[in-house]
Design a protein around this nucleic acid. Structure first.
Lengths: 233, 233
DNA sequence: GAATGTGAAAAGCTTCACAGCC
DNA sequence: GGCTGTGAAGCTTTTCACATTC
């Protein structure tokens, strides 16, 4: 195995493979192939083999991949074999939806503290937690050793809250506000912007309607884009 | 101007420029530069100039870009100068948060119908709308000529609902479920997967902690990745 | 025969550097 | 002097094709 380091784009696909492998696990399937994973994830088989080869050789030529083993490797590689305490900042509509989203807990992300600036929300019970005022961020973040925070706050308040979080030790942010956060190097930011995604859809819709446009049809029946991811933004 | 067609990556950045231009508009600023937009969006200035050059030449060398003019051009290009009726499918925690998210209406996306399969949610009032059963998707989608739908449904139900939507004329989907939708070519899908984004963050956190890793520090104080949304998912 | 892992080629995307224009 | 728009270079990512392994 040549030592090449993994690309950003590959890292962004690994969670999809985890997802696919769990589907297979739930069906009691023990052995799989890049071809089968391709069906489950919408990513091309050679791409999958390339991505997985960055982590080392986990498949058996002529046979395939051990589902449980690969799942274990990927979980480890992504850092989700351990539990991460997460701060949720902003308990509006989106924040409260995230607080009750099982998908996070299933991946070992535990919401360990919830903050808001709105006095009317402070004190609200969230499962076993209570919404705390932003003024308590320094103390709680430090006590719980929280490194990852989710920002589900109004755009105007978000940079300031990010600064406060980062000043107290947070080094990874998932930002839902439609603004570009400025953070020191060493802090990782991922953005989720629902309105931006909708605009990308509307761009494509418009192209479908006006026939003179310089855009071609998409590849085939499968997943497109994201990178959520994303990409990009 | 040479006729080159715009890249997917560029399209995904255009909503950021819209956002930045609106910030400038709200400050009454009429003229700007790629440098200033770079500060506001976290994207490098040459990248911005390149992206904008795909739509044609809208700046004035030596002077910059007219804020209102560029905003208008971008809105038009992205198809958001018109109102898009949108179907929201799934009225759980996430769905209801989306229903009351102003960011969509501000970008001319109007939630025109809300559906759910859960009988306990059907009939719920959502502003001026009522949550309708999935069985009414065919009729309502057709009547309202809806092309864009948001899927905020449990993973297990999502593919089936996507099929129903697509069969009735929907050609763009924003999918929040952590599964890879299979759709006919001609249908555009963008995925937002919160848990996947968190896994990407945890990957980076882990790299920061183990010093032997093959990953370097990020560029500088700015936006990274996403692309959210990107991207990818 | 079947499927992985990977060089090598191709495509896509970003950055640089600067000519040209205001 | 300042800033855009863009060739050209450089880098990243994807795709192909096949040697290798089981």
């Amino acid at each position: 195995m040549k030592v090449t380091h993994i690309s950003q784009a590959s890292v962004a696909r690994l969670p999809l493979y985890i997802q696919g492998l769990e589907t297979l696990l739930s069906q009691g399937i023990q052995l799989t192939s890049s071809q089968r994973l391709a069906q489950l994830t919408g990513i091309e088989a050679p791409q999958i083999r390339r991505d997985l080869s960055y982590l080392g050789a986990f498949g058996t030529p002529g046979v395939g991949y051990n589902v449980r083993g690969l799942h274990h490797e990927l979980s480890h590689y992504l850092g989700i074999s351990r539990v991460w305490p997460v701060a949720l900042v902003g308990f509006g509509n989106l924040g409260s939806a995230l607080a009750s989203y099982d998908g996070l807990a299933e991946r070992n992300f535990r919401i360990a503290a919830v903050f808001d600036v709105d006095p009317s929300k402070i004190g609200t019970q969230v499962g076993e937690l209570t919404v705390a005022p932003a003024s308590r961020i320094p103390k709680i973040i430090e006590e719980l050793k929280i490194e990852i925070a989710i920002l589900a706050t109004p755009a105007a308040a978000t940079q300031q809250l990010a600064d406060l979080l980062v000043a107290n030790g947070v080094t990874a942010l998932l930002n839902f506000a439609p603004i570009a956060l400025v953070v020191p190097s060493g802090v990782t930011v991922r953005n989720i912007d629902v309105a931006a995604e909708m605009q990308i859809l509307s761009f494509h819709e418009q192209r479908k309607q006006s026939p003179g446009a310089q855009f071609r049809a998409r590849p085939a029946a499968q997943r497109q884009s994201t990178r959520s991811a994303t990409e990009g933004l």
